[in-house]
Amino acid sequence: MKLNSSQQKEVLAFARQLVCEPGNSGDEEKSALLIEKKMNELGYNQVRVDPYGSVIGIINGSKPGPTILFDGHVDVVPIHEPDEWHHDPYGGEVVGDKLISRGSADMKGSVTAMIFAASYLDKEKLLGTIIVSASVAEELIPGRALEKILDEYKVDAVVVGEPTKLRLGFTEKGRCSISMTVTGEVAHSSSPELGKNAIYIANDAIRRIREIPVNSDPFLGDEVRELVELRSEPTPGYGSVPYYCWGLWECRILPGESEQALLNKFVSSQKGSEWEERIHFQFETIDIPNFTGTHLIGKDFLPAWREDKNSGLYKQMEAAVEKSGIPVEYEPIYYGSNALMSCGVKKLPTVIFGPGDVALAHKPDEYLRIQDLWKATKIFNHIMELNGKYTY
């Protein structure tokens, strides 16, 4: 398809409307209701908000075929540096060829493109079913909202619309968070020899973890193990040797790394330490309350994945991109997205593809080029038109 001027205007107008809703994780209700209303106006066959707040729209073709799901999250991160913004973070301003706003690139522009791409389909020519999901809470608990959708709907392939500069994301680092607890013995700080300082024990544990060999991948580079938080008790610690210390490690995982193998690396790093019995590790569990009153809860371990570029889904993606007149390029994905659930956990054929540059995500003056918004709408439409023409 080729977007006419009227279609270009309506796509941009809705993208501007959508980015004006803040919608931090768990508080996406206004965005969800806006999307639900728009999908109904655009003639989707079915539209609903699920128990966790995600909006699900379905387009049914007139002929049998597979079901392909297009997913994009509608939550955004809070504004941490308001003085660094030169534009209203939720103003939806158009300046030159850019839509400037929080969530424009990450990833309400992509969500908008998916919604309208599906509405422009000729249902009489469409094979199978198109599902568009506007999912929630991805910024704080990746994959879990999409997991609920995939548990309910039988899906044959998934397109996750994260910003890739319209390149095909074919592999992605996994992610997890591991907590470290250290038990010492309290004493008065004037007589520290009578206690065991949990911070000192933690320092030794940290050193040992940082000495674990780092593996590397030809596409994704080095795995990551980074200490992001450390706190002790009692606090404030005036007059006391700390008897407890807690640290949080965030990890970016390479393909092939299992949950147990990763945890074993942390545990094994402490072998031979005189403090070994005082140090414990476990995967964190994340619990996010949703605006619907439910909770998304999940262990924070999502494995890495890699897809075959010669598979049916990727041939379909290539054909759709080529039809739109832009070169086919591939992109390894270093951040965590909902694709970690659809492909890493559920093993469904998955590609990450969308407009915008992830380097702008979460930053002041985040923007999306309007031409890329329109290009994405056309490409998503072409992908949908090709549903059933390739074997997933």
Rank of each mutant, 00 (worst) to 15 (best):
D122L: 09
V94H: 08
S119R: 04
I288Y: 03
G72P: 04
R369H: 14
K123N: 13
D106P: 07
W305D: 02
I297V: 14
I288G: 06
E307G: 15
G65I: 04
K363Y: 05
G103K: 03
A361V: 01
R369N: 13
S240L: 12
G336P: 10
P22R: 00
A376Q: 01
W374C: 06
K108Q: 15
E257S: 09
E93G: 11
L42T: 09
L3I: 05
Q46M: 14
D308Q: 09
I352K: 11
G72I: 01
A361G: 02
G195H: 04
A359H: 13
A134N: 06
K347Q: 14
K63W: 07
G237Y: 07
Y153G: 06
P236E: 01
L386E: 03
Q260L: 13
V228W: 06
D217A: 04
Y390L: 08
G256S: 12
D222Q: 14
I79Y: 02
V76P: 00
M384L: 06
G61H: 00
G161W: 07
S240C: 13
I100E: 05
G239A: 14
K165Q: 14
A15N: 07
L69P: 01
R167G: 11
D151L: 10
P255E: 02
L3Q: 12
F380D: 04
I130L: 00
A187F: 09
F283W: 11
Q282Y: 10
H295L: 13
D88Y: 09
T164R: 02
G72Q: 04
P327F: 08
V49Y: 05
L18N: 03
G256M: 03
W374H: 12
E274T: 11
L313K: 02
H362I: 06
V11Q: 05
P192V: 11
S6N: 11
S104I: 05
K265A: 01
F116D: 09
L360C: 15
N4A: 09
G312V: 07
K315W: 01
N203F: 11
C343F: 01
V136C: 06
L140C: 13
V76H: 02
E276L: 11
T285Y: 08
H188Y: 11
A113F: 10
V19E: 00
F266M: 02
K265D: 08
S258A: 07
V47M: 07
L69F: 03
V351K: 03
Q8C: 14
A145E: 00
E329Q: 15
V77F: 10
M39R: 01
E138N: 03
A32L: 02
L348Q: 02
L34T: 07
T391A: 14
E10F: 08
D75Y: 06
D151E: 15
K2Q: 15
E250K: 11
K123W: 07
L99G: 03
A304N: 04
M317P: 09
Y392N: 10
L12G: 01
V77A: 08
P163M: 06
K363I: 07
W275Q: 08
I209N: 00
